[in-house]
Structure formats: C-alpha cells, structure tokens
Design a protein around this nucleic acid. Structure first.
Lengths: 225, 225
DNA sequence: ACATTTATTAACGTATGCATCACTGAAAGC
DNA sequence: GCTTTCAGTGATGCATACGTTAATAAATGT
C-alpha cells in the first residue's frame, strides 16, 4: 500500500507540477509556443485547471500567455540571469546571517553538512550532475535555515527560472572547487554563530558565481537559454 | 475622448485589480471569508475570471482559498511583518546600491526629490496620509531606479501585504521626522554615486523602521491586522 | 502582379452546468 | 440523555459550450 500523503490533489496543482517538470526537463523548450488545448490533452485534463496553472506559472515568470498565440515558454537572457542572481545574492545572504544568529547545533545543520560532503564526493568522482543536485540542496537548506517562508518562496521561484540555464552551463563551467570552499566557509560561519561573516562570505560567493556564469554565457555567445 | 490605453482588458485582470482595491480599502476585511460566487456577483462577472484572479492573489499572499469555506482574506501577524520587512530591507538596499552605481543625474532623480519634498511638506502640515503616500512613492522610485524588474515585482508584492498594517500604525507611530532625514541621506548618497553609503544608510533605515513598527504592534497588542 | 477588402478559421476568455465531497442537522440506537 | 449514523445541502473543482476577435486565406479590384 502506497501511503498517499494527500487525499486527492486538485488537477490544477497537479498541472502546475507537471508543467514545471516539462519545462525543466526541456520537453517544453524555451521559446516554444503551446496551445492551452494541447497542454490540456498532454496533461489529461480539461483546459480549466490548465489555465489556472498557466496563470500561476506566468506570475512566477516561467512562461507567458500570448492570447491566440499560445503560451510561450520564457527564455532567460543574461540580463535576466543578472537580475535573478542579484536577488538570490541578497536574500540568501540574509538567510545566512539569520541562520548564524539562530545558533543552530551541529545536529540541526546536518542537512547542510550532508550536502557539503555530497558536493566534495561529486567533485572527487567528477560527477557534475551529482554536484549540481547537492549544490541545490545546500542552497535550499541555507534558505530554509533562515526561517522566512516568504524568502524561501521567492528563492525557489528565482532558482526555478535559472534551472535550465544552470544545466547548460554545468559542463562548460570550471570545476566547482572554489564554490565548495566557499560553501564550507559559510557553513563554518553559521555553526560558530558569526552572522557578519556568514552574510559576507555568502554574499561574496554568490556575487562571484554571478560573474563566472555571466562571463561563460558571454564567451559562449549564449544570448538566451 | 478618454484615450483608452489598452483595448479591452480581460475580466480576469480587472478582477485582480478590483479585489486588491477591496482588500486594501478594508471592504474585504482581514480574516473574513467570502464565497467565490459572492465575489463574482460583487464584481459583476462569472466565477471563472474571479477564480483566476483568486489563484493569483493567493500566490501573492493576500488571501487563501479554503475549499468549501470560501476565500479568506489573510491577516498579517507581527511575524509576517518581520519577514516582509526583512525582505524589503535587503532588496531595497540592493536597489539603492545599484541606483548609486548607475550615476543618475539630478534630473533623473527628480521623482525621488519630489517625493522627498512632498514628505517634508506633509510633516509640516501634519498630514500623515499625505506623508504615507509620498513615502510609498519614494520607495517605489528607489526600487525602480534599481532597474531590476523582478525585484520591483517582489517589492510591490511585499509592500501590498503590509499596506493595511501601515494604515493602522500610521496614526499611532511617532512623527516620521527621522524617517525623512534617512530618506534624504539615501537620496544624497545616490546622487553623489556613493553606492556603499546608499546601501548602508537605507539598510539601517529599513531595519530601524522594522523595529519601530514591531514595537508599536507589540505595545498596542496588535497580534494581527 | 500587387494592394486592399472580405471571409474563414480557430484560440482564448468567459459563462454555465454538473459531480464530488465536506459540513450541518436530524434521526436512530444505546 | 448521549453518541453515532445517515441524509441533505451547498460550494468548489472541473468539464464543456459558446461568443469574440485576431490571424490567415481568399477574392476582388486596380
């Protein structure tokens, strides 16, 4: 018996999840157009819940409803990336500061620690996808330690928008060794309760990551993803 | 002839605006429940566009859809206020920094300047509502000078959520003279291109404002608004 | 052959109808 | 008298149908 956590999820919320997955997996590629009726057929439901989902995803910046032309999956330009990274830099730095002030125990930071170890391991075996997943978890952990649900929601939204782009750059970027030492420094600062350092180190880390990725995009002439 | 900027707006987007207005004006009071069919009747349209609007406003945190119990207008607790102010503090400070770096001319900062003067005038004649409006404009101007449309959208969302609360505290808070000198300092820093100062001063201003308002809420036993 | 007007199509926005499911109250059993 | 079960009610979530309107194709005139 599969324990069904929730009774019956609404089709509308299922549509949100499925569409997100289709976008992240590239099955709904950036820049492509899709009729609501097509999407409804793909998702196996009527247009009504699909429309509700589409309205939501439009508000989250993943797609764009163009009347009579279908929904267009949004591309992400370098300018978009810059905007998003700037926002993530600020909000995650705040989360790091708050987390440090909260005085978490090593136990409570175990999720973060595991992500760190997973990243090291991934680098050792040169598995970039595994590293990307662990990196994602690290940042999610960090943000959730900040105990600000709105901030978490915003960070998720922003991360979602650059998700595809990160996949593209994953194999052309330099090895993420610097990234890892940064992460450890943030972890250490939080563990010893040094709020100022946690904020500063993470801010620096994110700002640097932004530079690296923007240069990559420019060097490879990736004007939109 | 009124120049109709947009051809025919969709009922759905009209519903969003009208519901927001009803919420901000208090006609849909915090904590109250409303059936979709009632709202549809009030707005003079069918349930479909109302539902779309409601889905959006739920995502923006203004209300909550409770199946079979109607739409509940969300209250804002002091904890919510803290979260929101923290986010606004970070994002507006970033905007201030970016604005300073952009090297705007006095001309380009005229919108901000006007808001400043309007605030001074409002304080002189002790018109708090006028001050609140000008203050709002100042912050909007600041954020828009940051040239990050996502940041602007988030800031608007967050400001919306505390809008009602600010109305409540407007008359029990101390005279906003300190606030005004802070604002001028931010303006000056941006004008002379001092990014570090712009960020720091604004950060300090917002952090202080958060403290003041939270103490007010606590002192007046306003556990939710 | 080209431009302009008309006709057609089809996608979206909206209204409407219906099935589902939680909640209310009444009836029956203990 | 109290608890429990069952029927009734009503709001939501969803499907479907339709009108409007923009985009496309056709047709007409120059």
């Amino acid at each position: 018996m599969t324990l069904d956590a929730e009774r019956t999820r609404s089709n509308s919320s299922i549509a949100v999840d499925m569409l997100r997955d289709l976008i992240f997996s590239g099955e709904l590629a950036a820049g492509t157009d899709h009729l609501e009726s097509e999407l409804a057929e793909v998702l196996g439901m009527s247009r009504t819940p699909v429309r509700e989902a589409v309205v939501l995803l439009e508000a989250q910046g993943l797609l764009e409803v163009r009347p009579r032309k279908g929904v267009r999956i949004k591309r992400v330009s370098p300018e978009d990336m810059a905007e998003i990274y700037d926002i993530l830099t600020e909000l995650e730095s705040l989360a790091a500061e708050t987390a440090a002030k909260a005085g978490y125990t090593e136990q409570e930071l175990s999720g973060m620690k595991q992500a760190l170890d997973a990243m090291d391991e991934a680098i050792a075996v040169k598995n970039r996808e595994a590293w990307a997943i662990a990196d994602d978890i690290f940042h999610q952990e960090l943000v959730s330690l900040g105990k600000n649900v709105r901030l978490q929601a915003i960070a998720t939204m922003m991360s979602d928008q650059v998700r595809r782009a990160r996949l593209v750059t994953l194999y052309i970027r330099p090895e993420p060794t610097k990234s890892n030492s940064d992460h450890r420094a943030v972890y250490d600062a939080i563990l010893r309760g040094d709020a100022g350092a946690a904020r500063a180190v993470h801010h620096e880390h994110r700002a640097h990551a932004k530079q690296v990725i923007l240069e990559l995009l420019s060097r490879h002439r990736l004007s939109s993803i």
